[in-house]
């Protein structure tokens, strides 16, 4: 069964269709890339999946279960985690606390144990903190545990968001332009993190503009344009799809993803 299956997904803002009748399936344990020009509807797609937007029409199923229209925290509960295009860490919390906040659903503490701090609750907290530390190391932020997230440079904040999502042990991870605006070194590190995560069995859906990165990593690529799904398939197939070439090259020759080809 596909991890995500999207049928006839339509999202209108007034007259504008941010998404128009999108049909696609994200295979389980795939590394699924979504590409397309700015304003194509990529982030809107993530927002529909994660409950931030209620689709105008259509359905989104997670492991066969309808999730469109569910509140954001319910979708999270079902194992979907995301990062945001414009980084949204908790600025006044330390990096470690940011990651711990991501573990909200994994902690059993209730009101009483939060207030009283029973030995068991405290041991659990310590273990969780140690695990959060490991997730920081995983994304290359080992020494930053105590730094306030708001004081971290941009690229690190992006990676912190990834760690915050991963500690929840999601079954589906949605990354919204994780490598946008970061240095090329960080981009490579990020590609490693994404690849590693995917190999560990997480279904990864990644919006990314860097086509070279997409071609290297993704097992499936979907192309959105003006809210429509232009093509979906293996990277090589999509790259040579005439509609994709036209959408990119026909419009602005120099700004297409494969303009040098």
């Amino acid at each position: 069964m596909p991890a995500l299956s999207v049928v006839d997904l339509t999202l209108s803002f007034g007259g504008l269709n941010a998404l128009g009748e999108v049909n696609l399936e994200v295979p389980d344990r795939s590394l699924f890339a979504v590409i397309g020009p700015n304003g194509a509807g990529k982030t809107s797609f993530f927002n529909c999946v994660t409950g931030y937007y209620r689709p105008t029409r259509g359905s989104v199923r997670l492991d066969g279960r309808e999730i469109s229209g569910l509140p954001v925290d319910e979708v999270a509960r079902l194992g979907v985690r995301r990062t945001f295009q414009n980084v949204r860490v908790f600025p006044k919390l330390s990096a470690l606390e940011n990651v711990l906040a991501g573990a909200h659903l994994r902690t059993s503490a209730n009101l009483a144990t939060s207030v009283l701090g029973t030995p068991r609750a405290r041991r659990h907290e310590r273990e969780l903190a140690a695990e959060a530390q490991r997730w920081l190391e995983y994304v290359g932020l080992a020494g930053k545990a105590r730094v306030l997230a708001g004081d971290l440079p941009y690229g690190m904040r992006k990676r912190l968001e990834v760690a915050r999502a991963l500690i929840a042990k999601p079954s589906v991870l949605l990354l919204d332009e994780p490598a946008a605006g970061v240095s090329s070194v960080e981009r490579d590190e990020l590609a490693d993190v994404v690849g590693k995560t995917w190999r560990e069995g997480v279904t990864v859906v990644m919006i990314e503009h860097d086509v070279e990165l997409v071609m290297r990593l993704a097992s499936t690529v979907a192309v959105l344009d003006h809210g429509r799904l232009l093509a979906v398939g293996a990277p090589e197939t999509v790259r040579n799809d005439p509609r994709v070439i036209e959408a990119y090259l026909g419009r602005r020759r120099s700004q297409g993803p494969w303009s040098q080809a």
């Binding site: 994660t50 931030y52 509140p71 954001v72 925290d73 999270a76 509960r77 985690r81 995301r82 945001f84 949204r88 908790f90 600025p91 006044k92 919390l93 606390e97 711990l100 906040a101 991501g102 909200h104 659903l105 902690t107 503490a109 009101l111 144990t113 939060s114 207030v115 701090g117 609750a121 907290e125 915050r164 929840a168």
Partner: peptide, 25 residues
């Protein structure tokens, strides 16, 4: 104590950005 517990972190996450806090469940 609460500040360092699950409850306190949830509160602070809400204070910082409640839409994002919701994405943590």
């Amino acid at each position: 104590r609460v500040r360092r517990s699950r409850l306190g972190r949830a509160w602070l996450a809400i204070r910082e950005d409640e839409d994002t806090a919701q994405a943590m469940g």
